[in-house]
Simulated assay, not measured.
Amino acid sequence: MPLTSLTAMSPATEPSSVPALRLEPVTPENIDAALELKVRPDQEHLVAPVARSLAEAYAYGDTAWPWLVYDGERPVGFLMAFFDVVFQPGDQPRSGLWRLNIAADGQGRGYGRFAVEQVAAEIRRRGGTRVCVTYVPGEGGPAGFYARLGFRPTGGRSGDQDVAELELA
């Protein structure tokens, strides 16, 4: 996909309380803003920092899809998706959300929902039928957030993280 911005195209996929959201690729012009994004201190053990995600995006090349979430001119989050990855021999290829960091002062405003919806739309565009996500389980973790979006735990694990999936209609 060419490095251009992605903007929500329809009110059906865009939170009504946040009308000016869009995704932008990480570029030399916005990398410092990306690196400054921080989740709340009590969430730091739940998600890797953006710097680690960008290093993994570099190492994994075409597998990783790193983008910034903007509200107007302000970056408010970071997401990284993956597409058609086979994790173990004999597995079906999976696509999903690899990383989601919403700035501490931007949480609860629909930015995370927007990010997940954009990843789902890209997976659908590429012919996929489900979105996978992994997350650290436990108190204060994102399990409830993903459940509210329709993700269902698979019972599987990826390292120390639980796996959940969302079937796309």
Score class of each variant (00 low, 15 high):
residue 83 F to S: 12
residue 101 N to Q: 12
residue 144 G to L: 08
residue 22 R to H: 14
residue 96 G to Y: 02
residue 164 A to Q: 00
residue 14 E to N: 13
residue 33 A to G: 04
residue 123 I to S: 00
residue 12 A to K: 14
residue 50 V to A: 07
residue 113 R to Q: 09
residue 16 S to V: 10
residue 88 Q to P: 02
residue 17 S to A: 13
residue 91 D to V: 07
residue 168 L to K: 07
residue 83 F to Q: 10
residue 127 G to K: 04
residue 129 T to N: 11
residue 35 L to I: 10
residue 25 P to G: 00
residue 109 R to G: 02
residue 54 L to G: 00
residue 122 E to V: 08
residue 73 E to D: 15
residue 167 E to C: 07
residue 50 V to I: 07
residue 35 L to P: 02
residue 57 A to M: 09
residue 74 R to Q: 09
residue 25 P to C: 01
residue 21 L to F: 06
residue 89 P to N: 10
residue 145 F to L: 03
residue 17 S to T: 08
residue 97 L to G: 08
residue 81 A to W: 03
residue 43 Q to I: 08
residue 157 R to Q: 15
residue 52 R to E: 15
residue 13 T to E: 13
residue 115 A to C: 10
residue 165 E to G: 03
residue 25 P to W: 02
residue 137 P to T: 09
residue 23 L to K: 10
residue 75 P to T: 03
residue 99 R to D: 05
residue 149 L to D: 04
residue 98 W to F: 07
residue 152 R to F: 05
residue 114 F to S: 03
residue 115 A to N: 00
residue 24 E to V: 03
residue 158 S to Y: 14
residue 146 Y to S: 07
residue 48 A to S: 12
residue 2 P to L: 10
residue 35 L to N: 06
residue 7 T to M: 00
residue 63 T to G: 14
residue 20 A to Y: 10
residue 101 N to R: 06
residue 39 V to A: 05
residue 16 S to F: 15
residue 48 A to G: 12
residue 34 A to L: 05
residue 98 W to P: 01
residue 12 A to E: 15
residue 136 V to Q: 12
residue 123 I to M: 03
residue 20 A to L: 11
residue 54 L to N: 04
residue 96 G to W: 00
residue 57 A to T: 06
residue 2 P to V: 11
residue 128 G to E: 09
residue 56 E to C: 05
residue 22 R to W: 12
residue 163 V to H: 02
residue 4 T to P: 06
residue 109 R to I: 08
residue 97 L to N: 00
residue 124 R to T: 13
residue 89 P to Y: 09
residue 49 P to A: 09
residue 19 P to Y: 12
residue 102 I to V: 15
residue 157 R to A: 11
residue 147 A to Y: 09
residue 121 A to W: 08
residue 160 D to R: 15
residue 56 E to H: 13
residue 81 A to D: 03
residue 164 A to D: 01
residue 52 R to D: 15
residue 142 P to Y: 04
residue 43 Q to C: 06
residue 4 T to W: 08
residue 146 Y to L: 07
residue 18 V to S: 12
residue 64 A to R: 05
residue 135 Y to A: 00
residue 23 L to A: 11
residue 145 F to K: 06
residue 140 G to S: 00
residue 91 D to Y: 09
residue 134 T to W: 05
residue 78 F to K: 04
residue 3 L to D: 06
residue 152 R to M: 12
residue 55 A to H: 10
residue 40 R to K: 15
residue 155 G to E: 07
residue 76 V to P: 01
residue 11 P to L: 15
residue 50 V to N: 02
residue 134 T to R: 05
residue 54 L to F: 09
residue 69 V to P: 04
residue 109 R to V: 07
residue 11 P to R: 15
residue 65 W to L: 04
residue 145 F to G: 02
residue 143 A to W: 00
residue 6 L to Q: 04
residue 169 A to C: 12
residue 169 A to Q: 14
residue 64 A to T: 02
residue 33 A to E: 01
residue 36 E to W: 11
residue 83 F to A: 14
residue 125 R to G: 06
residue 5 S to E: 13
residue 148 R to W: 02
residue 160 D to G: 14
